[in-house]
Structures are given as C-alpha cells and as structure tokens.
C-alpha cells in the first residue's frame, strides 16, 4: 500500500511562526495513489498550498511539520534537505501557484529546463534539449525552439504557466503536485492540458495531486475530491458523489454558486449592489 509509488499523507500538522505560532494544518490524512488524479479544493487560505509545500519540503523557515508523508515506504518528513533533493523535482515535482516561483528571471527557459534535467538524469546536452522541446510541445507552448531562448518575462501569463508545467514534467516524476495549474489558461488550452495530465495518469501511472478552485477542472479530471477548510479535510469522496451530492456546507455552497443548467442563456451580470452569488467558476454550456 505504501510502496505503490503514490503519496500517503498521515496526520500532517503544520505550525507557522515563532513561539506557539499559528496552526495552519490540523492533521491532514490524504492518499494520492498512482494512476489517479486526487483533487484538492477549498476556500482561499484553507491550506492547500501549504499541504503541497509540505510534501516538497519547502515550508517557510518558521514552520514546523509533524505527522508522516510516505513515498515508497520513506517518510519524507524525516529526510534531510540533501536527501530530499534527490526526490524533489525528479520523482516528486510541483507546479507552483506562482509560475515564476520555479523559474529564475535571468536565465533562459532552455537553460533552466535542461540543466535541471541533466543534473538529475545525466543526459547529454542534445538529449536534454530534445526532451525540453518535447515537453514544451506537449504543453502547447508556441514555437518551442524559440521559447528555449526566451527569458521568463518574455512570455504571457498563460504561456509561463505552461512552461512551469513542462519544467515539472521534465524528469518524468512519479508524483505531480499541480497547484492551480490552469488559472491563466483559456478553456481551449486548458482542455489540452487536462487531456495531457489524464494521459500521463492512465499510461504512466503518474499520481497527481490537483489543487484547484475551479469545479469545471475538478469535474473533468479528478477521480476523487478532497475539500479543505481552515486546515482540515472536511469532505472526501469520489468525484461524482462530491459534485452531485456534497455533504459539507462549503462544498455545497460552491456547487450552489454555479448557475442552473439553463444558465448559459440567462444574463448573469450582477446588478450593482444586488446579489452576485451567481458568478460561475466554470459552467456547463453549449
């Protein structure tokens, strides 16, 4: 069970700040199995990113984590920074909510993608470049050969998000943590990326932890959905069950905020000062 290449989070508690600090995660249990997309939803500030950062060993310096994060029988929380480096970015990769976080502003994209890949795999320059072009193509970055020579600021917001996804997939990780990976993508590109992630799960057994506020994305891709609130998991179940029969009030409020099935034709703009709870995150239409 714990040696299956997936991720198993047990009683994860995170406290941030000096002295007693603030408890951000109050004991999280979550399985992220191989070949599946595990969705993580929840209010802004509920602890989704901190959960991902705990797995990566990238918590703020004033943070303390306890519990277990099991990957192939090893508890990642017990590893030293150097030991963790062997996993991080290679076996376990993360697409950060801020796409610039994983990219150095002064280095070309090609340099960053290939250096990282070569240091983890020992590939030649040529192989690394081919791999980078392959990944950039897969995530639909336009003109991948030119993109290699560009710097982060020379991409649009959505292009940079795709570059960050390519970077995370470079080393062929077993576990991918994707933190709001499609917020800057229009629906057509988003659909292609969802398809890519689905394919990696189905064909290569990738374990995906998908953090998203977008129920449309969740509904298309997640196999199971966990919902967080104030540092706790308040709902966990199969996609269909969570979306069609949510038990938790927060989950229900999210579903209720979606327009009715005929919402595609109605004008939904909020009158000034009037109730605006109809804004759809994404909705079924056409």
């Amino acid at each position: 069970m714990t040696g299956d290449g997936g991720l198993h989070i047990r009683s994860l508690r995170v406290v941030i700040g000096r002295d007693a600090g603030t408890t951000i995660l109050h004991g999280i249990d979550l399985d992220v199995p191989r070949g599946q997309v595990t969705g993580l939803a929840g209010e802004s500030g509920s602890g989704k990113t901190i959960t991902g950062m705990s797995v990566m060993g990238l918590l703020p310096t004033t943070a303390r984590a306890s519990g277990q994060i099991l990957f192939e029988g090893t508890d990642l929380l017990t590893l030293s920074a150097r030991q963790l480096n062997a996993y991080r970015g290679a076996r376990i990769a993360m697409v950060f909510q801020d796409p610039t976080a994983s990219l150095h502003p002064m280095l070309s994209i090609g340099g960053q993608l290939t250096d990282h890949y070569r240091s983890h795999t020992g590939a030649s320059k040529r192989e690394a470049k081919d791999r980078a072009v392959e990944m950039l193509t897969k995530v639909q970055v336009p003109e991948p050969e030119i993109a290699l020579h560009k710097y982060p600021h020379q991409f649009s917001g959505g292009q940079l998000q795709r570059v960050a996804i390519a970077g995370a997939l470079m080393c062929g990780p077993s576990v991918l943590i994707a933190d709001e990976p499609t917020t800057a993508l229009d629906v057509t590109v988003q659909a292609e990326l969802l398809r890519l992630l689905r394919g990696l799960c189905d064909d290569l057994g990738l374990a995906v932890l998908l953090i998203t506020h977008d129920l449309g994305v969740m509904s298309s891709l997640a196999d199971r959905i966990a919902v967080m609130k104030d540092g706790r998991i308040v709902e966990l179940g199969d996609r269909y069950q969570v979306i069609t029969a949510p038990q938790d009030p927060y989950t229900r409020s999210l579903i209720d905020a979606l327009p009715a099935a005929d919402g595609a034709s109605a004008g939904g703009r909020c009158a000034d000062g009037a109730d605006a709870a109809r804004l759809p995150g994404s909705e079924g239409s056409v």
Partner: peptide, 12 residues
C-alpha cells in the same frame, strides 16, 4: 470548451 460541472469526468 468551458468544462461542464457534472461530475462525469468528461474532458471538454
């Protein structure tokens, strides 16, 4: 291409 929220796991 807007994904539907129907819980059916369909890619848009």
């Amino acid at each position: 291409a807007i994904p539907a929220v129907d819980g059916l796991g369909r890619l848009p």
